[in-house]
Design a protein around this nucleic acid. Structure first.
Length: 456
RNA sequence: GGCCACGUGGCCGAAUGGUUAGGCGCGGGUCUGCAAAACCCUUUACUCCGGUUCGAUUCCGGACGUGGCCUCCA
């Protein structure tokens, strides 16, 4: 069976036919590093990590190149850097902020058990490539210069709007912002803009300035993946204007029909039924999330919903994931770690537009049928490291055990077991209740009793 | 306001023009002094209104609802 992916260009599920089977190329829009990464950032990271694994499995590890950029030039970055480090010089403050967030982002990605992309280029290291593209676009009359701004002229790109399925007429009708006076057309967008004295800048043919949004992805994808590549990924909220503008720039620059053969977009994430936003105060940071749940649990929770569906991020769902994984881990052994074979029915559902919920259904069946090799082979393929997770679950118990007086607990358990032997069940139940009040759940196994700390 | 997507049982969540999705929870049972865990059984849904069809949750139209984008937020 071949791989099928929903392609935003054609708006349907297409068979994936690479441009070159020996050189599979995927570009995914990475984070703009201006603020603490949140759980919404994690979705594309996890989804495209899984797609990367599928591609590697299908075409061979060495034949797949995965580029995920770091956008470290952005007006929000400037604003936050100056607020956060008011006493430091602008460029240093920006560097401090972006390096810090980038480091966190990579750390979280690895805790979510994501493989490192082949290349993680930073925008600021590709300014000259951006300038080169902009110059070419001016030469081709796809862009014009006004007072230090360079603006892309969307009327020079016929297919503008086709990716995001928008018409110029609708966009203008729906516009709610004032049109910048330097634009010929309200929908034209900025490739380069002049910098004020307190803003970071690079020298350019149009004076001291900085790139607009979008151009960094055109520059970096061209550099590392070529004029046209296989898959361009990112969140659906990026389809307009970001991806639309990237396509317009890249295709005009290369005189190409396509920037990427397939555009793959993941759905959005809500928090307890509401959209995550700063104004609602419900932004969940990855840092907090990873403090509460092991990365594998977050990863599994993310994959329990199909990547194109909106996902509702709830505590209930996380707890359910945790219980399922706990149950599966309970039947693992040393061989489980070595289960490398990917069961074919499971794999085929993944090839069908990465249908993870259905793949997980197969895993439930493997568990019920005691086909543990298949179960752990599948878990392994999903990138869920059971060894690490089970260690974490054990140490979680241990750290909770540390918080209470274990000798006291053991003494009570002994007392209770002798009461049980003497068939003094009234007393044994009293002790059980007492332990429960202490937050301890007992489990009798023959004449032995095991116990664990009750989670809140 | 404009454009777009989605709306499945208590909850999560797929597929599908006609046949049981699956998981969690609830309920019942086996086991256990009682529990827990485990296992077995059970729980028949597709927002509403029209249309197409022998037959629609599935296709088409409309209504309502939720969400996304149009504000350089994944």
């Amino acid at each position: 069976m071949n791989l099928f992916l929903y392609n935003s260009i054609t708006k349907k599920k297409d068979e994936f036919i690479p441009l070159d089977v020996n050189k599979i190329r995927m570009y995914v829009c990475g984070p703009t590093v201006y603020d603490e990464p949140h759980i919404g950032n994690a979705r594309p990271v996890i989804v495209f990590d899984l797609l990367y694994r599928i591609l590697r499995n299908f075409y061979g590890n060495e034949n797949v190149t995965y580029v995920r950029n770091i956008t470290d030039v952005d007006d929000k970055i400037n604003k936050i850097a100056s607020e956060k480090y008011p006493d430091i010089e602008t460029n240093l403050a920006i560097n401090k902020l972006t390096m810090d967030i980038e480091k966190k982002f990579k750390d979280y990605a690895s805790k979510l058990e994501c493989l490192s992309p082949s290349i993680e280029p930073r925008a600021t290291e590709h300014i000259s490539e951006m300038i080169e593209i902009i110059e070419c676009l001016i030469d081709k009359k796809s862009a014009y210069v006004v007072d230090g701004h360079v603006i892309f002229d969307i009327n020079k790109y016929d297919k503008y709007g086709s990716l995001s399925n928008k018409s110029q007429k609708d966009l203008i009708a729906g516009a709610r912002i004032e049109v910048a006076t330097y634009k010929n057309n309200p929908l034209d967008f900025v490739l380069w803009k002049p910098s004020q004295p307190n803003e970071p800048y690079w020298d350019s043919p149009w004076g001291k300035g900085r790139p607009g949004w979008h151009i960094e992805c055109s520059a970096m994808s061209s550099k590392y993946l070529g004029q046209e590549f296989d898959i361009h990924g990112g969140g659906i909220d990026l389809i307009f204007p970001h991806h639309e503008n990237e396509v317009a720039q890249s295709c005009s620059y290369h005189s190409n029909e396509h920037m990427a053969k397939y555009f793959v977009h993941n759905g959005t994430l809500n928090i307890e039924g509401k959209k995550m936003s700063k104004s609602l105060g419900n932004v969940v940071s990855l840092n907090d999330m990873l403090d509460t749940y092991h990365g594998a649990i977050l990863r599994f929770t993310m994959l329990r919903t199909h990547y194109r569906q909106p996902i509702d991020w709830t505590k209930n769902s996380l707890e359910e994931s945790k219980n399922i994984l706990k149950k599966w881990i309970s039947v693992s052994n040393k061989d489980s770690l070595r289960a490398q074979e990917v069961p074919s029915e499971f794999y085929e559902t993944l090839l069908d537009d990465i249908n993870t919920p259905q793949a997980i259904t197969k895993m439930h069946a493997y568990f019920s049928n005691k086909e543990y090799d298949k179960l752990f082979g599948a878990l392994n393929f999903l990138g869920i490291n059971i060894k690490d997770l089970s260690h974490s679950m054990i140490s979680e118990q241990n750290s909770k055990k540390d918080a209470i007086d274990e000798t006291e607990v053991n003494k009570l358990i002994e007392e209770r077991n002798s009461a049980r032997k003497a068939k003094d069940y009234k007393k044994s139940d009293e002790i059980r209740n007492k332990l429960e009040l202490m937050g301890i759940k007992l489990q009798d196994d023959g004449d032995k009793s095991t116990w664990e700390y009750i989670n809140d």
